[in-house]
Simulated scan of single mutants.
Amino acid sequence: MPHSVAIDDYLKTIYHHTEWQTQPITPSQLAAELSLAPSSVTEMVQKLAAQGLVTHRPYGPIRLSEAGEERAAAIIRRHRLIETWLVHEFGYAWDEVHDEAEVLEHALSDRLLARIDERLGHPRFDPHGDAIPDAGGHVHREDFVLLAAAPAGHTGRVLRVSDRDPDLLRAVEAAGVAVGAPVTVTDAATLRIGESEVALPPEAAHAVWLTA
Score class of each variant (00 low, 15 high):
A149E: 15
H206F: 11
P182N: 08
E33T: 07
L48N: 00
L112Y: 05
E105G: 00
L112I: 12
D163H: 15
E89G: 01
Q23F: 09
V54C: 05
S196G: 05
A107T: 10
T184Y: 10
T22M: 04
A6T: 13
A32E: 15
V177I: 07
V179K: 07
R115F: 12
H17I: 05
L48W: 03
E102P: 01
V87R: 02
V183E: 03
F125S: 09
F90K: 05
I132G: 05
Q29N: 13
D110N: 14
D95S: 04
P61W: 07
I14Q: 08
P182M: 07
E66R: 10
V103W: 08
I116Q: 02
A178M: 10
D143V: 14
R192I: 06
V158N: 09
L146Y: 06
L30W: 06
L81G: 01
A74Q: 04
A148L: 14
L64M: 03
A178Y: 12
E197G: 03
H16P: 00
E89F: 03
L147M: 13
G194R: 14
M1R: 09
I82D: 01
E70C: 01
I76D: 01
L146T: 10
L81T: 05
H17W: 14
R160P: 00
L30N: 02
T18H: 06
W85S: 00
H140R: 12
A31L: 04
I82C: 00
P58Q: 06
D8H: 06
R119K: 13
E83G: 02
R63H: 11
D165Q: 12
A148R: 15
A204Q: 13
A31K: 02
A72W: 02
D134V: 11
D110P: 02
L168S: 08
A188H: 09
A67Y: 04
T184H: 07
H3C: 06
R160C: 01
L34P: 12
D110H: 11
H98D: 01
D9N: 14
A72S: 06
A135Y: 07
E142M: 13
R80Q: 07
S35W: 15
P123R: 15
M1N: 05
A72I: 12
R170W: 05
T184P: 04
A72M: 07
R170Y: 05
S40K: 14
S162F: 03
W94I: 09
V45F: 07
A74H: 01
D9C: 12
V5S: 07
T155P: 01
P151Q: 11
A37N: 15
L191P: 02
L159H: 11
H140C: 03
I76C: 01
A199Y: 11
L34Q: 12
L86K: 09
H106R: 11
A149T: 13
A174R: 14
L104E: 04
G68S: 08
V45R: 10
A37V: 14
A204Y: 13
S162I: 03
T26F: 00
A72N: 03
G91Q: 05
T55K: 09
A107W: 13
